[in-house]
């Protein structure tokens, strides 16, 4: 017997060291001569003996375990939902699960689309309003009706939104309420005197459809636009209007 044969023998069966083959004459003869094989057999014998001891040392299954497993089984069967009883097949449950997932994903996609549509609709309406405002509001400088009283009045700051929307427009000039402002071409839109309309007013030039201005020039078509100066008070309410063209 050779060392190779002995190693192959141990590789095939790990409990070979305690097999009767190891007691054969040829085996023993080689082991006596070869120190390496002798050590290998010694190691393998010890390992096999220990593993056998460990295998035998395993405790027996307690009878109480059988009882508790059976009790668990019964309680599980009695407590489980009816739907599980009705659907024991694996494929059916899998299909149901897949259907639920698909429905959830579809719902999420639809909801996200609706939200996006709503947001884009909101944006477009805001854009429309702002462009309209830009075309309408074109304030022009106006000669001061009363330069002395205007110097005494503080310059009123315009709100940011208006400033942004009227980029190319010249700033409006605050004017004090003139005594005879109705005689300077403005038509009163509401009652106004020094007491009820204190402070400076802004004159803003706007573009309006001619049809909206009943007192404008009659020669223009209904689809044309007319420019008008609007006298706006500090409270933002228009006090008077004058059609320019």
């Amino acid at each position: 017997m050779t060392c190779k044969e002995i190693r192959a023998h141990f590789q095939g069966d790990h409990f070979a060291a305690i097999n009767p083959l190891c007691k054969s004459a040829a085996f023993l003869e080689h082991v006596v001569k070869c120190g390496e094989c002798s050590r290998l057999i010694e190691e393998q014998t010890e390992l096999a003996t220990c593993l056998l001891l460990l295998r035998e040392g395993a405790p027996a299954m307690p009878a109480s375990l059988d009882t508790s497993v059976l009790v668990n089984y019964r309680s599980y069967i009695s407590q489980r939902p009816r739907s599980t009883t009705a659907l024991p097949g694996a494929s059916r449950t899998g299909l149901l699960g897949a259907f639920r997932w698909a429905a959830a994903v579809a719902f999420a996609v639809v909801a996200a689309g609706a939200v996006l549509l709503f947001i884009s609709a909101q944006r477009s309406s805001v854009d429309r309003v702002s462009t309209k405002g830009r075309s309408v509001m074109a304030p022009l400088p106006l000669a001061r009706a009363n330069s002395q009283s205007a110097a005494l009045e503080p310059v009123r700051k315009k709100p940011n939104s208006i400033v942004k929307s009227a980029k190319h427009a010249t700033p409006t000039i605050p004017v004090a309420l003139p005594e005879n402002w109705s005689s300077s071409g403005f038509q009163a839109l509401m009652y106004c005197d020094q007491l009820s309309c204190p402070g400076a007013m802004d004159v803003i030039r706007v573009q309006l459809p001619s049809a909206a201005v009943a007192f404008g020039p009659t020669s223009s078509k209904a689809s044309d636009f007319v420019y008008a100066d609007v006298l706006v008070g500090p409270d933002g309410i228009a006090r008077g209007i004058r059609v320019v063209e």
Binding site: P62, L65, S68, V69, N72, Y73
Partner: peptide, 9 residues
């Protein structure tokens, strides 16, 4: 024992 019980459940 715990493992055996839990495995069957």
């Amino acid at each position: 024992e715990e493992v055996v019980q839990d495995v069957f459940i």
